[in-house]
Design a protein around this nucleic acid. Structure first.
Lengths: 207, 207
DNA sequence: AACCTTAATTAAACATCGTTTAATTATCAA
DNA sequence: TTGATAATTAAACGATGTTTAATTAAGGTT
């Protein structure tokens, strides 16, 4: 058969992404194959290549979707103080990771073979997140210079990310299921306490 | 041909692991295939299955090696104070990750399809690392109870791990190459400062 | 209506993959 | 010398990502 015109290009793209996400959730990343995705939407593997450059392209587009959802899962909480906002963001982040394990894993743990560099759209979304953190940290310690704030934002967010990673991999060896929230609280609280009393001296110790 | 007896079982195992590691470093995880590994050591793909249950088994054994190397890359520094020891360990950890990108990525980012649970030997090594951290943190804040220490150890080490992950993925958007050391320093220093002044009250805030 | 161009869709092919199987053959014990 | 054992291989199987040529429907032009 040929030229069915059942769906527009964009429709097929959306259908394929939906099917791939479902497959990803059901069977994990290993379960996502061109043939399976295509079959689910009533097409053939070859058709996908009219809409995606390759499977990595499809993965990146799923990641873009995931990152958008993640951004909208990070609630504002503007009524609270900066410390509570930061803790809330961290909690939201890890909660999202737990709720969308498969999508989150693809976003952060999938090695793409072909185009090793991240698409521009993805980078921008991440950088935007960093800037939110920087604003909060600057408010918590107005004495810190911009370079310190940059460092601290990456430190604390790397930390939150690390807790999320290890939680999803069960590499924290926790008893309770909800314990990662206590760990997050420890991370944020202690970091902020230290950050608020940080003096202006640049701390570049070498080990 | 058959029954060459050129090498013992253990020798073949070691040869295969060496070849697989080299392949991993040269071409990334996608470049490691049963046929390629076998060819490199002068055998055939089928022979590997006499020594490994499957490729995931081979991956786990590489990971076990990597973890041992990582452990011996974490230098003691017993002459220094607890804070400096912790910072040193963190620095060693990220340095190791950068120096052994491919091996490190396999250890922490490879999703194994078949046996999803981690082998016992791996878990033990990780738990041992956590306990070192706990000792140092307990020394830094003797007022903290054991549950707080457990949380803090996982928080700070999750944090270090997260910085390592994001560094290797270039998702921290850093200018300088050495900047991740500054970030690590910020993480450790601020966390420890907060941790040392932490009072005994349990902090279980919900967001 | 008839024709032609265009573009979507498919089936088939290709190389590769992990893994299993049967066949081969070297080694060792009797 | 024979026979059992075990290592090794070649070949097969199903599945993968991707490309290719062939098909055929749709849309515009006469």
């Amino acid at each position: 058969m040929a030229r069915r015109n059942d769906h527009s290009r964009d429709e097929i793209k959306a259908l394929a992404l939906d099917a791939a996400e479902a497959l990803l959730i059901e069977e994990g990343v290993a379960g996502v194959s061109a043939r399976k995705v295509a079959t689910r939407i009533g097409y053939t593997a070859g058709s996908l290549y009219q809409v995606f450059a390759n499977l990595d392209d499809l993965y990146w587009q799923i990641n873009l979707r995931t990152l958008k959802r993640l951004n909208s899962a990070l609630l504002p909480r503007q009524s609270l103080g900066a410390a509570e906002q930061l803790a809330g963001l961290a909690s939201d982040y890890v909660t999202f990771a737990k709720q969308h394990r498969a999508l989150w894993s693809l976003l952060f743990e999938h090695r793409s073979a072909s185009s090793c560099s991240m698409p521009e759209a993805l980078s921008q979304q991440i950088e935007q997140l960093f800037q939110e953190i920087e604003v909060l940290l600057a408010r918590l310690n107005p004495r810190a210079d911009s370079e310190q704030v940059r460092c601290a934002a990456r430190a604390v967010w790397g930390g939150v990310h690390g807790v999320a990673v290890l939680t999803l991999r069960d590499k924290l060896f926790l008893q309770q299921t909800t314990a990662e929230q206590a760990i997050l609280a420890s991370l944020i609280e202690n970091f902020i306490n230290g950050w608020q009393q940080e003096s202006g001296h640049a701390s570049t110790a070498a080990y």
